[in-house]
Design a protein around this nucleic acid. Structure first.
Lengths: 152, 152
DNA sequence: GGCCTTACTGAAAACGTTTTTCAGTAACTC
DNA sequence: GAGTTACTGAAAAACGTTTTCAGTAAGGCC
């Protein structure tokens, strides 16, 4: 029943590989496995976790290649580092564009949302008062997702 | 001429030591030197830099004590980690309360400002749409300060 | 002021993470 | 299919941070 639909993760993966390609990177089995593990992850993964996840599909992959691929994806703005209260909790696929992350401290999932206008009033007041010209910002929220609120 | 006024850094230092004291920490020469170096710094310092700065006043201080003191000050919310585009650039004194940091990528100075209300609309919309309950946030701005804009 | 408890100290060692190196491999171009 | 060259994985090196531990001194108490 119903016709076949490509799943979301497959689309994300193709998009990521395409972007790597466009930027001049070669598409290798190692990168495919790493990118796949990244888009399939239900929460931000650190390099070690991403390495272990990628090895399921491509056991010969090395941790070094995970670092190098993350570096490339960060460079392309496809991935963001996620900060918890006590430092970095991992990297998450965010896709292109201005995205922010809300991280649930209970289940560890990251929720991606857009919102570049929300900070403009703050940025403007900073320009007016301090004459500080804002070029970029780091904004991440921590809290509890709907499901984890319900669970308590 | 005019009567003597305590300088700002001295006041900050006394305040920090007082807060450490109130939290049950002992005031030692090492901590005094580290706290002094921190409030006198013109920009965020990493542990190594803070260590070198503290050694000017107290040459016997160890790097470990710098780490331990930073940990205590972070715990007390007196100090914040500052993130540049490529990761942590150091720690800066922010004082008590809800403070944000704007970091100048040219001179490396950090500008501290208050503004807890600025994010409330964003947080509310997140609660409405995702039902995500926001508990905390990380917000830091990067850009150019007034003087560094003038310099170009 | 001096004593006592115990947190604090600094040096060294241990530790985990990230980066560099390098010779072999394989992706993409023509 | 051949050639160029970016990529790979393993090992080693480098790096930042934390742990350990015996000696020291801060602050409370008399």
């Amino acid at each position: 029943m119903g016709r076949w639909l490509p799943n979301r993760e497959g689309l994300k993966m193709d998009f990521l590989l395409q972007e790597l390609r466009r930027a001049g990177y070669r598409i290798t089995d190692a990168r495919r496995a790493i990118v796949q593990a990244l888009v399939n992850a239900s929460r931000p993964l650190n390099p070690q976790e991403l390495y272990e996840a990628a090895r399921v599909q491509h056991p010969r992959v090395g941790l070094v290649t995970v670092y190098r691929t993350l570096e490339a994806l960060l460079e392309l703005g496809m991935v963001q580092k996620v900060h918890g209260e006590q430092g970095c909790v991992g990297y998450v696929y965010t896709g292109r564009g201005h995205r922010h992350v809300a991280w649930c401290r209970a289940c560890g999932r990251a929720f991606i949302f857009e919102g570049q206008e929300d900070l403009s009033s703050l940025e403007q007041s900073l320009e007016r008062t301090l004459h500080f010209r804002v070029e970029g910002h780091l904004l991440q929220l921590t809290g509890l997702c709907a499901e984890c609120q319900a669970r308590t």
